[in-house]
Design a binder for these strands. Sequence first.
DNA 1: TGGGCCGGCGCG
DNA 2: AAAGCGCGCCGGCCCA
Length: 574
Amino acid sequence: MAAGAGDGGELRPLAEDGTPAGPAYAVADLAGEIAAREREAAPRWVWASGARLYPRLLRAGVRVARCHDLELVENLLLGHAGRYGEPRSVAAAWARLHGRPVPPDPPPAHEAASAQAPLFGDDDAGERAAPSDDLGRIVEVHAAQQRAIAGLDGFALLAAAESAGSLVAAELGHDGLPWSAAEHDALLTELLGPRPSGGLRPRRLQELADRIGAAFGPRTHVNPDSPAQILKAFAAAGLPIPSTRAHVLKRVDHPAVPLLLEYKELARLHAAHGWAWLDTWVRDGRFRPEYVVGGVVSGRWATNGGGALQIPRVLRRAVVADPGWCLVVADAAQLEPRVLAALAGDRAFADAAAHGDLYEALSDAFRSDEATGGLSARAKAKLALLSAMYGGGTGEAVQLLGVLKSRFPDAFEYVEAAARAGERGRLVRSLLGRTCPPPSAGWRELTLAGDDERDPGQAAPAAPPDGARRPATAAQALRSRGRFTRNFVVQATAADWALALLGSLRRRLTALGPPRLVFFQHDEVIVHAPAELAEAVSEAVRASAEEARRLLFGATPVAFPMEIAVVDRYADAK
DNA sequence: TGGGCCGGCGCG
DNA sequence: AAAGCGCGCCGGCCCA
């Protein structure tokens, strides 16, 4: 399918392998034609970009079951080939096929829209400015992608799951998360005081700001929003601190500390999710964020605005089901360690992950006499796992990693191998083939420059101040890259699994009718459903988790249990 | 005044 | 409680 500049477009039927199965034809009403074809045959729609095209169809009341998203798949194929970041448009892919100059990608729609706002007067400016797609190139690029996919293990599933994800993302943005503006406003008023006019601080914040100043001395003014001013004030009080982070402040004995901690928490709520956010993002009882599929290198999604993936827990009471409806809130329990268990094929580890609480099942291995700290055996198991997956391992975690290594050698070795690959500058992949970006030119330069400990001339500038993350030495850069690839294999495979879950759940919910997916956050979904369908939806969630497990891992003994709650409001789920 | 970096913190 | 991984977004602040 190729969208034209207006409401029309061109179509051409394809065989499963991508070869044309009939002539191309043009239509004046593309949405109407798609709706008709969908009813009679529910084909897999091959199109340039669901993110660009599907919202239009949704607004026209048209939904489709399946698609092949050329831009998303091109991006996955480029990444697999170690060409991360090259242009992914159909025009670019076609140019690569023909050895022509490759055009750069246009800027993302939201940037283009704002950049062109002065030129066009209405909301549709971005879409109308988009060039019409070229059907011939679409057919050609699709066939080339099908050939490439066929040669890569797991990639057909990855391409299908990523494409299905783009449909889910557009539908989430279209349907929206049920959001009670009244409940949100009540919460803000309760915590901050009444909504202030203009740019003033809410009453509660202003009180705290005044008392913070007073705590440092009479007539002292400290802007609590300014870390620099807070540092100065503490230094003047004889209490120098390296930063104003909450965990640093908590260790300081000064009357301003509790006030500052309270101020920071409330100010954060006000700035990030206050009345301005409510005005901007909630309309007609729905919060409609814009999800970006493939927006994170690991395959997790990102968002363009609204911060849908960072909704504070305190605000979840504003997520309220419609009357007569409910929210089915489901999250995958301990997803990443279970993914590691299934990936590594570690027999002992996989057996522990076969059911129930994974960390509890592992804890016997960590119940040693030479106890580290006052941690429970379960807490030790969890710490060991997190350290292995994130590349931690300072302090007591060192010993726990030793236990992990001796008791679960295959699981330990799996992430170690990924870390070693990273330190050598190599690429690592998820189970389905999503590939990490190559190291930057700066990384290669730094790590090839040799051992800086023996060559001070090559060493980067003096160690950056607290909080700076840029590696200063080759050793730091190597370890950092190792932590990234170590984590990538687990996080990206968990994202594979979550995408498979979404695709399966979407299909099952369509069969149920009214229920709608309304939220997705890495390993958690919310379905908005008529109350009488709550059990059917819960069952669909469980079946989808099971299907995702089977699609990715086949006959693994590892279980992927979902914790499911049927509630009226999101806050009641945990 | 707009752009971009920084410190900090929300989420998984 | 904090430290390893991945993000987005805010206000403060500096610079052009």
